[in-house]
Amino acid sequence: MSILQIKNLSKDFGGLRVLENISFSLDEGSVVGLIGPNGAGKSTLVNLIGGGDQPTRGEIYFGSRRLNGLPAWRIARLGLARTFQITRIFSDLTLDDNVRLAAWTNGWRGKNLETEVARLIALTELSDKTGVLGRDLTLSDQKRLQLARALALKPKLLLLDEVMAGLNPSELDRAIQLLAKLRNEGITMLVIEHLMRVIMSISDRVLVLHQGTLIADGPPAEIVASSQVQEAYLGRRYVKNRGGFQPDEPSEVKEGT
């Protein structure tokens, strides 16, 4: 059964078409990777799904619910949580208050609230940072915090926009394990990531965006073998050293569109 359906989605910014006629659906419980060069439209797509912006054309369904026109907070309350590529945390609140507020907003109360907050902080390995103000957290901690905060929404669908960028190899391994664990809990995920190692190890399926259009959609092995994807994104070097960490495209944190 599909949990998310995107139908003929397009987005223009003024005269610039950023997304063109995108259609796909996500099966419940699946983990789908979304890759593509910087500027391909990945973050814009996530933004449209999360209600941060409205599509120019096309429709988005979450289950049977049409999301077009709904404000972002209402979409979040339906169980569709997201993280941001450029971290957005509540800098005036402590780490635990960040998570607590998200959980409280979504109905956790009293003792359950505290238990859940502690669980999420432990799950994202932030227990030693409780009490630290959001503004004083490192980038990697902020990324984890965003994930903990998103999980506080008890999401059915999680949109992860480059949560792994900036992690060192051992942190990366643990993050991959964490996502695998979340998948086992039945959370559907759409994962934007430049790190092919991550995409290959956790995705059931990969979507490739290039210049605003969906150029490939299939199992990871098939995607890696696709000459069109190699041309547009992975580069030939990736294929030569199959299993390399990332494509030729630089993956610094940049505001993707």
């Binding site: 999360g50 209600g51 941060g52 404000p71 972002a72 907070w73 979040a76 309350r77 949580a81 997201r82 941001f84 957005r88 945390i89 509540f90 800098s91 005036d92 609140l93 208050d97 960040n98 607590r100 507020l101 998200a102 409280w104 907003t105 979504n106 959001g134 905060r149 998103a150 506080a152 929404l153």
Partner: peptide
């Protein structure tokens, strides 16, 4: 805390359901 969250980052506040 909701108001402080709005002050910090309104879009993030909306993204957690506020």
């Amino acid at each position: 805390n909701t108001l402080l969250a709005i002050k910090s980052d309104e879009q993030a506040a909306q993204s957690v359901g506020i």
